[in-house]
């Protein structure tokens, strides 16, 4: 296994790594056009728009802020821990315990399976093969993301960054369709969140580092009751634009 971990995450080690092509690998992995199936999911934004919790760009910003510091932080820490070489199956069980909503667990595993397919074709690795064999119906997406980052030569902090960014870029993109929101406004929401996304990725990378000595229970478990409750309801809608 490649061991590219550094100390806790810093902006510098996210961007700069000694492995040629790693920075571009991070761009590729975070690109909404990377064929990992994320475009079909709104990260809870569809349910939030339907019951009036998001009405405009300001509401989207509030939603993204809350999601970043809860689901985003948890996903980023799981991803960083997988990149850092913690047992992927223990991380997969930790993700289950941190996702009480059965609907959200099923979404995370479906996204994990889709990312696994894309990742094995793009950055083949023994770590991805082993996880795919152990969880043929899909491991949790952040765990797959972390092993993908490792296969691409990225450090844990970069995996955390990709997961933290993804936790808000999905809802922002979905809101453009759901609310006919101006795409410029959605992009501005993400740009204004950038310092918090960076900080969340750093916190997640530090937690992953600590988990190497204290075990996976040291990873964050921040919960978002509205996301959990509305996801169960959304999964039962007969007609919807997004799968979650």
């Amino acid at each position: 296994m490649t061991e590219t971990d550094t100390e806790t995450g810093t902006d510098a080690d996210t961007a700069g790594t000694s492995i040629p092509g790693a920075l571009t690998a991070l761009l590729l992995l975070s690109d909404g056009r990377f064929p990992a199936g994320g475009h079909a999911h709104s990260g809870g934004a569809e349910a939030a728009v339907a019951d009036g919790r998001i009405r405009d760009a300001a509401g989207l910003a509030d939603f993204c802020r809350g999601r970043l510091h809860t689901a985003g932080l948890v996903a980023a820490a799981l991803a960083a821990a997988a990149t850092a070489g913690l047992d992927p199956l223990a991380l997969d069980a930790a993700a289950d315990a941190r996702t009480p909503s059965a609907a959200l667990r099923s979404v995370s595993r479906r996204l994990g399976r889709q990312l696994m397919r894309a990742a094995r074709a793009t950055w083949p690795s023994a770590g991805l093969d082993a996880l795919a064999a152990a969880r043929p119906r899909g491991a949790h997406q952040p765990v797959v993301l972390g092993l993908t980052a490792q296969a691409a030569g990225l450090p844990p902090s970069a995996a955390a960054h990709a997961a933290a960014y993804e936790s808000v870029s999905g809802p922002a993109t979905a809101a453009v369709r759901l609310l006919s929101l101006d795409p410029f406004h959605a992009a501005a929401v993400l740009a204004r969140l950038a310092p918090q996304i960076d900080a969340t990725a750093r916190t997640a990378a530090s937690a992953a580092h600590r988990a190497r000595t204290h075990g996976v229970s040291a990873l964050p478990a921040a919960s978002a009751p509205l996301l959990e409750i509305s996801a169960e309801d959304h999964a039962a809608w007969p007609v919807r634009l997004f799968a979650s």
Partner: peptide, 11 residues
């Protein structure tokens, strides 16, 4: 953490 009283967490 910011957003705790927003539409994703406790509203």
């Amino acid at each position: 953490a910011p957003g705790w009283d927003g539409p994703a967490v406790l509203g």
